[in-house]
């Protein structure tokens, strides 16, 4: 990790995101955008969801009478092309995700940066209140992710994104032969399809809140950090007073 750079006047640039994290993050954003849009194209071919082994056509659990064409890839109705985009970017998503996971495991980012410390856990109530007031940490405290940030990232990385992949594979008849337990544990292929949709909705909701928080907590600084790696800290009076 490169050392801090002193920019003078109480400004310090700290190296926050290594290049592997930055690249895999943006590749992932590309994948998620395309997977969601082509996924909606696929959903449009039969916009009804069910639970269980098979479709109960007269009694879907959830239906989508009109999926807007601006949200689908391609915009016109074209299941074949939607599938081509979906599966290509699904592969990219998996490879990219594995690189990221391998990195955070091997270089200890998972433990050092993403896992909450005991102090973090104790700080949850306080952090919730601060977030509700849209007050974000300042000064030295921004060197680390706050506890809500950590828990959200962990939930996305270890629950939502893997669930997406798992239920996606669960819909494949080829995979069903190779690993029948994948649909057994979720209660059938139509349950897998419904869970796939729910996981996608979860990711979309996360992405919206995530971008909102990036914007509210200093968009330029956040984006610079996720693009160049360098995050600027403005020391507060308290920090400078420290010996």
């Amino acid at each position: 990790m490169p050392a801090d750079r002193d920019r003078g006047q109480g400004r310090i640039d700290t190296y926050r995101h290594p290049w592997v994290v930055r690249i895999t993050h943006w590749v992932n954003v590309l994948c998620v955008v395309i997977l969601v849009m082509s996924g909606l194209q696929i959903l449009r071919a039969h916009p009804h969801l069910y639970w269980g082994l098979a479709s109960t056509f007269d009694d879907p659990w959830l239906s989508f009478p009109n999926i807007p064409s601006w949200a689908t890839l391609p915009s016109w109705q074209d299941l074949a092309r939607g599938r081509r985009w979906h599966f290509f970017f699904a592969w990219l998503f998996v490879i990219n995700g594995l690189i990221y996971l391998a990195y955070i495991l091997i270089w200890g980012r998972l433990r050092r940066v993403l896992f909450p410390t005991r102090a973090d856990i104790a700080d949850i109530p306080h952090s919730v209140v601060e977030h509700a007031k849209l007050k974000f940490p300042e000064g030295e405290a921004v060197r680390r992710y706050n506890v809500i940030q950590k828990l959200t990232y962990l939930a996305v990385l270890l629950v939502l994104l893997p669930l997406m992949l798992f239920t996606g594979l669960g819909m494949s008849p080829g995979m069903n032969a190779a690993a029948p337990w994948m649909i057994e544990i979720v209660g059938g292929r139509q349950s897998a399809r419904t869970l796939h949709f729910i996981a996608a909705a979860g990711i979309v909701i996360f992405a919206i809140v995530h971008v909102l928080l990036v914007v509210l907590s200093g968009p330029i600084n956040n984006m610079r950090a996720m693009i160049t790696g360098w995050y600027r800290i403005r020391l507060t009076g308290d920090d400078r007073a420290e010996p």
């Binding site: 071919a45 039969h46 069910y50 082994l53 098979a54 479709s55 299941l79 819909m171 008849p173 139509q190």
Partner: peptide
């Protein structure tokens, strides 16, 4: 099970 490309299963 019969899995249609459209997404349904019978």
């Amino acid at each position: 099970k019969h899995d249609c490309v459209e997404g349904w299963t019978s």
